[in-house]
Nucleic acid binder design. Structure first.
Lengths: 342, 342
DNA sequence: CTGAAAGCGCTTACAG
DNA sequence: CTGAAAGCGCTTACAG
């Protein structure tokens, strides 16, 4: 394993010059630079990141924490984060919170603090006061995606507004009996996201002077199969099934469409369905939705982070509250249509 | 940011004792250990991983490379790897190969070599000779999942045998007109997996003395929507549509089932469908499949890796060819049934 | 059981 | 532009 010393000898210069040349720093003669580069290449030299980290205090590595990896929204965000980081020469260390409270504690109080990362991007994970304080003490900025973080920077769509927008789209089409399938209470308690989307739905219904029947609200686990089950229940009601359903995610929208089909209902003739996300398969299902562009959201968070890390005065404001709103526009496809009385 | 020195002072011992006590090493008196632990806790001390790495040569970090993150199979393997690593105090650095050849080169020749990882787990990524040589030179073991790696350890199911098994299941049910939807040629050329599954299918058909009509073979991109399209084509053939279809992945199986439904065909009465994977949604679709247990596969790969890293004589056999077969049993659900002539 | 000290492999102010 | 040397914060053989 060849070190910087060996390269220096080979090139006939000091290790200081090798370091400067290889890192593209100024104050190196073209000749020295060429010699160093040739020697490094010939010897197959790659600088040890731990030695560099120890000397500079910078790891060139970002920690990413998320609650799930195997769900579309999270995996796509992760992909956006990863590809942007690698473009900039950064590594990504992954922490999945699925292991419960004790794992979470270890991640926040041990893994994230052992000076292995320069900063943290938290997706749908809301650090509490103590967790945030630890990070700030270690001078680690954190950027959240998916909801506002108290005392730190974050990037997220306006969930309440999205609920209003989806509902108003259905209202404008003449629907009055509108149901909603939200997330399971507690499943996302980090930010009570489903609540905000549900609140938006209620607000829009109230503003239109419409009743929200209890039987028109259901919750599920954000999966296709979970939503299928509750949608079938809702649509099968002989007395007052809704004529339109707003789902808090596209995957739940797919389940709802499949449930409708299996009941012999036609979408959108008999029942309109709208989701949130703009999933890879939404076009295939012709699902009207509110677009989240998770890949771009991940990319944006990385750009915010890198800018922060390049700020010489970062120390003075490691973590400050600052929420950046992510636009979430309506995408109309074939699953919603004018209500026609049956 | 408190260092080991400060803890030593606070506890009234040397830094050597602090290090030994905190790492649970022997030869520390209970009294000293207690003092150190108290001091560390009080000061909120967490050892710097880069300093520890520089001193020991061990990073406690594993690099994971994969071609996609946002596909079920890969995201679940990743989850299995992550949760097992964290249990053992290891970090996971993620590399996604989706960025094309130049990104791949950077990952293999730069990122993976800068002494940031102790080893590499490669999922459906097959390093070439030069890439493997680099890793071996840096004493980094690599373990592959998803196919045999020439010159290194790997863990994978027998894809050819799975093709035979799936086809024989359909043959036993009396089907003779059996189609197959495989992966797109080139999409997985790392291991030509789809080829092996297709070869198994052909072998089983030949062994049964049955013809494999060209129109019964199609390929797709492993997605639901991709398979939907080609399945509709295959099933819509007025002259000789197959009575059963073997799909190289469960997601393609879902697409095939949806295509059949939309054509008014009943599964399994009119058409049998079998997949490979045992996807989270396979139960929901009642899809018969060959189970891969990706989560457990990821876990197993980590266990193999950690055992390797604890082997004092690892240096002598950093990378040697050794393929471990992963069992892939048949799981019969409701999408396959006895063929009844129409 | 415990401590002084060397060493891991870089980077960078400082002096030239 | 270039080099000698200190320093980053740990771990561990060595000696006691």
């Amino acid at each position: 394993m060849v070190g910087i010393e060996e390269v220096a000898e080979h090139a006939g210069v000091s290790t200081a010059t090798v370091s400067r040349a290889l890192r593209g720093k100024a104050h190196v003669s073209p000749k020295a630079r060429a010699k160093v580069e040739a020697a490094a290449k010939e010897l197959g030299y790659v600088a040890s990141s731990s030695a560099a980290t120890l000397a500079t205090g910078r790891t060139q590595n970002i920690g990413v924490v998320l609650p799930y990896i195997d769900r579309w929204f999270f995996s796509v965000i992760l992909e956006g984060i990863e590809s942007t980081l690698i473009e900039h020469g950064y590594d990504l260390t992954l922490y999945n919170m699925s292991g419960g409270q004790s794992q979470r504690d270890r991640i926040f109080n041990e893994f994230l603090l052992r000076k292995r990362v320069d900063g943290v991007i938290a997706v749908a994970v809301n650090p509490n006061e103590a967790e945030l304080e630890n990070l700030t003490r270690m001078k680690k900025p954190i950027i959240g995606i998916g909801g506002p973080i108290k005392g730190a920077r974050s990037l997220s769509m306006d969930d309440r507004a999205a609920g209003v927008l989806a509902t108003e789209h259905l209202l404008t089409l003449g629907h009055t009996r509108i149901g909603m399938i939200g997330g399971e209470p507690g499943a996302d308690r980090e930010f009570n996201q489903p609540d905000l989307r549900f609140i938006g739905y209620q607000q829009a219904m109230n503003a239109a002077g419409l009743e929200v029947k209890p039987s028109w609200s259901a919750s599920s686990d954000y999966t296709i199969q979970g939503a299928y089950k509750v949608a079938k229940q809702m649509l099968g009601d002989p007395k007052d099934a809704p004529t339109a359903i707003f789902c808090a995610s596209d995957e739940m929208g797919f389940g709802t469409i499949m449930a409708a089909k299996d009941l012999g209902l036609e979408v959108p003739k008999d029942i309109s369905v709208i989701g949130i996300d703009d999933h890879d398969m939404s076009d295939f299902f012709a699902l009207t939705t509110i677009s989240q562009h998770p890949r771009e959201q991940g990319k944006k968070a990385v750009e915010m982070m890198l800018q922060l890390l390049n700020d010489a005065k970062l120390q003075e404001h490691v973590n400050v509250e600052e929420t950046t709103e992510w636009p979430a526009p309506l995408v109309v496809r074939g699953s919603t249509a004018k209500h026609v009385g049956r």
